[in-house]
Amino acid sequence: MTAPAPADVPILQTASSLVELTLDTYVRLQRLAFGGGASAPAPVRELLVAAVAALERARTDLAEATRDAGGRVQTDPDPEYAPVVEQALPTVRGPGDVVGLALTLEDVLAQTLVSDVVELSAPPVRATVAGHAAAAARRKALLLTLQTLLASGRTELVAAPPDLLALPPGAGTVGFPDVLFPTEKASPPTEGTPR
């Protein structure tokens, strides 16, 4: 098995910093009644639960890869987006805001991980990161769908299972807008290195 190289360390640290921030934000959103509480739409509440579990796995995997590459594990949140979250959280007023904030973070995380797959030197670590990129992309797809439905004002459409006859046709495709996953919002590899 090819071990990750020292040059991979900042890439993995930045990925870790985004995972830390996204995970912490999800946990805080779960505490809101309309995020993880009783008044939250079931798909939103279930997404937060699944996201926390998946991001905890990502944190563990990235930490192991960082150590294997000879680096120090990054446990701090991403410095670029942490202030954005702190500014946004007090303005979250309903499920649509929960979805919007989560979508912002997931898009950056997924795009960064996809970019990382190309940049990392060791194929096994690439595959691990690709798996987490796919998981983030799954969450992005669901968030895009939920955002569209919530923006329509018909909150009854955000249900599990959904009423297929009532859903607009666009709900079937809004979750996958790109043929190839974009990377223009990917964080640069040194953004999340320890200070």
Binding site: A110, V114, S115, V117, V118, R126, A130, A133, A134, A135, A136, A137, R138, R139, K140, A141, L142, G175, F176, D178, V179, L180, F181, T183
Partner: peptide, 12 residues
């Protein structure tokens, strides 16, 4: 790297 996440979005 670009294809896998898009297919994952189909699944979601």
């Amino acid at each position: 790297a670009g294809v896998g996440p898009v297919v994952a979005m189909h699944g979601a």
